[in-house]
Simulated assay, not measured.
Amino acid sequence: MNNEKYLVVVSGPSGSGKDTVVKRLMELHPEIEISVSATTRPMRPGEREGVDYYYLARDEFERRIAAGEILEYAQYCENYYGTPRAEVDRRIAAHKTVILVIEVVGAANIKRNYPGATTVFVRPPSYEELEQRLRGRGTECEEAIQKRLRRALEEMEYAVDYDEVVVNAQVDECAEEIYALIQKHQRQ
């Protein structure tokens, strides 16, 4: 339980900028580590195996679930996303601050398994900004964008279940706000 304070869960809807904020947080504070998640979704241009995600075939992901090797998982837009157990346990045992960037169902599962973890929800400044960010990616068709927008509205309702909520209007400010929250929770 005492080591759980080193575990930080960051969630937010697709397009909230949570990945960008966490990347900047780690640039500003290199002592913080990220747990690399596993997924069955295809690799996007510029992503790297073992850095952005572990890209697994659906049957391999399901085998790892059955073997208890996936700490939490969920399906999102027809793909599995999950956290390899070893990624988390190794780091918190060594008293390293480790961040999981996961969706809301996974975050609830982590909080049940690691009640001392800190959960942070990243909100976009507005729905309009969220839509602009999703469209600006240029990686998905209109149907996928609409699905992500609908899901984003559902996910934002879960913000009340998090220990902390931040608004990502400016990446550096949001990263520093999350860092201050991490420090606060680790002192408690």
Rank of each mutant, 00 (worst) to 15 (best):
R63Y: 07
Y81V: 06
D59K: 09
R85Q: 01
Y76I: 04
V88D: 02
R64D: 10
E72T: 15
Y80Q: 08
Y80E: 07
Q75P: 00
Y80N: 02
Y81W: 13
R64H: 09
E72M: 14
A67H: 11
A86S: 15
A57S: 08
V88N: 03
E87R: 13
C77A: 15
L71R: 12
A74W: 11
Q75V: 12
E62V: 07
G68W: 02
R63V: 04
Y76T: 08
A86F: 12
N79P: 01
A86K: 14
Y80G: 03
A67Q: 14
E72Q: 11
R63N: 12
E72W: 04
I65G: 11
G68D: 01
F61A: 04
E69Y: 04
F61C: 01
R58T: 13
E72A: 15
E69S: 07
Y80V: 05
E87A: 15
I65F: 13
E62A: 04
A67E: 14
V88K: 02
G82A: 01
A74G: 14
A66K: 12
R63P: 02
I65H: 10
Y76Q: 07
Y76E: 09
G82E: 05
E78H: 13
E62W: 06
G68V: 00
F61S: 08
E60S: 08
R85Y: 01
I65N: 11
F61M: 12
A74H: 11
V88Y: 08
A57R: 14
R64I: 05
T83Y: 03
D59C: 01
E78F: 06
E60M: 07
Y81R: 07
L71K: 10
I70V: 13
L71P: 14
E78W: 06
E78R: 13
R85V: 01
Y76G: 01
G68E: 00
F61N: 03
Q75D: 08
P84M: 11
R85M: 00
E69L: 10
E62S: 04
E60R: 07
A67D: 14
L71T: 10
D59F: 04
A57H: 10
Y73F: 15
R58C: 04
Q75S: 11
E60L: 11
R58P: 09
D59A: 03
L71N: 13
E69D: 10
E62P: 02
A57F: 10
I65A: 07
G82T: 01
E72V: 15
A74V: 12
A67C: 05
E62T: 04
F61P: 05
E62Y: 06
R64P: 05
Y81A: 07
A86N: 12
A57K: 12
A57P: 01
N79I: 01
F61Y: 03
L71M: 15
G68R: 00
Q75N: 05
N79H: 15
E72P: 02
Y80W: 12
N79L: 00
E60A: 05
Y80M: 05
P84T: 08
N79R: 05
D59V: 01
D59P: 00
E60K: 08
E72G: 12
Y73T: 03
E72R: 04
E87M: 14
V88P: 09
G68L: 00
E69A: 13
I70H: 09
A66P: 04
R63E: 13
E60F: 07
V88S: 03
E87D: 15
V88T: 10
N79K: 06
Y73A: 10
G82F: 03
I65Y: 14
A66H: 05
G68Q: 00
A86H: 14
R85N: 00
